[in-house]
Design a protein around this nucleic acid. Structure first.
Lengths: 228, 228
DNA sequence: GTCTATATGCAGATAGAC
DNA sequence: GTCTATCTGCATATAGAC
């Protein structure tokens, strides 16, 4: 009884928070990683200071070193986080749809929906690649991300070809082509912010439809949200 | 006579160099810009120190401040330099070839030949875009670069369509598509260094040939140099 | 035009209180 | 878990000699 009471008393003062409420490690860590992810992708690691991240998160600089060994460690965690999130996203695409065409459309739509977050991931991967540092685990993750993206698309195309709804093409090669184009789109939209995403994706659809000999006009994305 | 002799004498002591031979301002400046260009594109501005550039150029840190106001100024000069060089390169493509098909091939080949230097330019443009700073002159240059690249290609496609050697497509839109794909390729080859450039370009050719309904198989790039 | 020497400031990182 | 205070080192930038 006394012991329990005591332990309760012990907890109370711990809960009385200062400015930023005391959070469980995992929450705080995730919070830091998410914010660092945004900052790093927007401005490059070297241009973002630990203080920037701390300020943006609303915590003190030193706290970052409580959760991460150093800036590089944080950067690693950020890449890992971004890639894992992207992978989770791929899972949606693994739910088997009925037709390869539906799968294809789902794949494209997913890329539109997740455009911003994929763009950030690509950007950070690019920044990482320009680092001299070599962290095998991260490199593996990045490769896996691209492989998985291409694999999903490639499977769907292969299936379509087998079913004769798509004209025969080299599925792997063509998937890589599409993936590369999308990367280009990410870069373009960063360099030229006025880039019309919907138009660019519609153009991609036009090419895919022609290459795969799909009948009819491809579905068009409209500007803004999906709501009418 | 005397005046001429005197001017010759004046020059002599100037030529007596220390470790790094004294150079004319324009040479040195260009040298610094070229080296900075390589470093910035490989490693991002913020990760390259003035000392790095000085060391690589074989001069003293302070000399950089003799030629440039500060690092940002140097960065601006680097972008300007890179874009101008790219523009000079475009001039080749303006020499009118005989057929649109030759023009198209020339355009693609140019992109292969200049791949490294365009990649660096794209990389630096991307880095610049992530800077908060807005230097209108630079932004204009970057836009002009993309516009020009697309314009050249688009003209050639338009001509081919007029001559009925190409199937009708939206020339501007399709040119932008190709340009975007190439940007993607630059990114890809940085992130995934094992990227097979020739294969990727051949795949691009396959798509272009299909989209434009060009008869026969497109010319294939082989690995390595053009020599047999 | 190029160097030596140096000021200055700030970013990354730690110690230790609470 | 979070903060205050502080050290350290290095990068940008300048002054001034040659």
């Amino acid at each position: 009884m006394d012991k329990i009471a005591k332990s309760q008393v012990q907890k109370k003062p711990a809960i009385r928070g200062k400015r930023p409420a005391r959070k469980t490690p995992s929450i705080r860590k995730e919070e830091l990683v998410t914010i660092a992810f945004d900052l790093f992708s927007e401005r490059h690691v070297a241009s973002v200071t630990i203080k920037d991240i701390a300020r943006e998160t609303g915590v003190n600089t030193a706290l970052i070193y409580y959760y991460f060994e150093n800036k590089e460690d944080l950067f690693g965690a950020v890449i890992e986080f971004a890639i894992n999130r992207a992978f989770e996203n791929f899972r949606k695409l693994h739910e088997q749809h009925l037709s390869p065409l539906d799968d294809l459309n789902a794949w494209i739509n997913n890329n539109i929906e997740e455009f911003e977050s994929i763009r950030k991931l690509v950007q950070i991967s690019l920044d990482y690649s320009r680092t001299q540092k070599s962290i095998p685990a991260i490199e593996r993750s990045i490769r896996q991300f691209y492989d998985e993206e291409v694999r999903i698309l490639s499977n769907c195309i292969r299936k379509g070809i087998a079913e004769k709804t798509f004209k025969p093409v080299d599925a792997d090669e063509f998937s890589r082509f599409i993936s590369t184009y999308l990367d280009g789109l990410m870069v373009h939209s960063t360099i030229l912010p006025e880039t019309d995403l919907d138009r660019s994706v519609n153009q991609l659809r036009a090419v895919i439809w022609t290459m795969l000999g799909i009948e009819g006009t491809p579905p068009q994305s409209r500007q803004g949200s999906a709501t009418p």
